[in-house]
């Protein structure tokens, strides 16, 4: 049974069990959020998504409010806008004015919300946190909790997406703080370095370490591809800048894996531009490899293989190569070399 409700004077239909936030977004009404993420369970913590509902008192968080028949919702009254500005101002009183050199610039949800509500930088002179920047010594996730807005998306991403429980909130009043395990290092707390927490963090508090300083969102072009490591076949986006792979980002619409990736898929791309890459054909002469042109190498390969057609030849294909390549390997072995001795390391 669809549920009828009114948002900003327009009647819309929602499904039972949906929240007001979901119903609004599905109908093109933009409500800002920070702690909410569509993949994670809603917690109603940041209060940016507050709305007014007829016959209900005060401002209510839309992300945890279930739709009900006949509900009348307002999403942008002056009172609501005031409240959102207040929330953002409060966040800025304890946030470094660091956007110029922040990894998250351009992809930061706090920045977007502050811009949308035109909240000026506060001259607040009171207490600000000063946590050591980049303190956690793990290789892949960079931590800067001065930029943390305590939205707990990292906590939920680790628990709900990755199935680990690395992050938690240590409750200490003003010093409320995101901690790994019992305030130990991430690796000690059982982190698998999947990078989900960084992918779900809305600010520059948790970011990818290997790509630090290598560019920001607007400088990359993205190319969707399939992971080269295991048989799960996760999809992700290569972030390319000046002809180089500088980063991998996960994508909600990746059909097999969504935002989830493992440490190899998300951070295991460095080999592509490694200085050890072979870049020229090599021919062994007197026991030593000598660089050659492609033509010379191909002619030599063809000449030698032509002498061993039939069962004197064998092709070891590759479970890392594409389908198209493996197809040609077996076609070559069978049609040109005249043997069926083509196999790959499927059994290893």
């Amino acid at each position: 049974m669809p549920i009828n409700l009114t948002i900003n004077g327009n009647t819309i239909q929602a499904r039972e069990g949906e929240t007001v936030l979901q119903a609004a977004r599905a109908n093109g009404v933009h409500i800002p959020t920070l702690c909410y993420h569509a993949d994670l369970s809603p917690v109603g913590a940041c209060r940016l998504c507050v709305v007014e509902v007829e016959k209900m008192r005060g401002l209510i968080a839309a992300c945890t409010l279930p739709v009900a028949e006949g509900m009348v919702v307002q999403t942008h009254t002056p009172k609501i806008v005031e409240e959102r500005k207040f929330v953002l101002e409060m966040l800025l009183t304890d946030h470094p004015n660091d956007c110029m050199i922040c990894e998250a610039d351009g992809g930061c949800e706090l920045q977007d919300a502050v811009y949308e509500y035109q909240v000026a930088w506060s001259d607040h002179k009171g207490k600000r946190h000063s946590y050591p920047v980049g303190a956690d010594q793990n290789p892949f996730v960079f931590t800067d909790f001065n930029k943390c807005i305590l939205c707990t998306r990292c906590v939920r991403a680790c628990a709900e997406i990755q199935g680990r429980n690395v992050w938690g909130v240590a409750n200490r009043g003003f010093n409320d703080k995101i901690v790994a395990g019992a305030d130990v290092s991430m690796l000690e707390a059982g982190c698998e370095q999947c990078g989900a927490c960084a992918a779900y963090c809305p600010t520059g508090s948790l970011t990818d370490k290997p790509s630090r300083g290598k560019g920001r969102a607007h400088q990359f072009s993205k190319v969707r591809t399939t992971c080269v490591y295991c048989g799960v076949g996760c999809n992700f986006d290569f972030n390319v800048r000046d002809g180089k792979i500088v980063k991998v980002t996960s994508a909600r619409d990746a059909y097999v894996n969504g935002m989830a990736l493992c440490v190899k898929g998300r951070y295991g791309y460095e080999f592509i531009h490694h200085p050890d890459r072979l870049t020229k054909p090599l021919i062994k002469k007197d026991g030593k490899f000598v660089e050659s042109s492609w033509d010379e190498a191909l002619d030599l390969v063809a000449e030698k293989l032509a002498q061993h057609r039939g069962d004197e030849f064998a092709f070891l294909a590759s479970a890392k190569a594409t389908n198209e390549e493996n197809y040609l390997f077996q076609k070559f072995t069978r049609a040109v070399m005249g043997t069926n001795s083509v196999d790959h390391c499927a059994r290893l």
Partner: peptide, 23 residues
């Protein structure tokens, strides 16, 4: 490498998916 070519991989659930040339 796989970042330098087009093609397809088939994953463990028999899904044939695109590999795309990024560089």
């Amino acid at each position: 490498s796989f970042a330098e070519k087009d093609g397809t991989f088939s994953n463990t659930e028999r899904r044939v998916q695109r590999v795309r040339k990024a560089i």
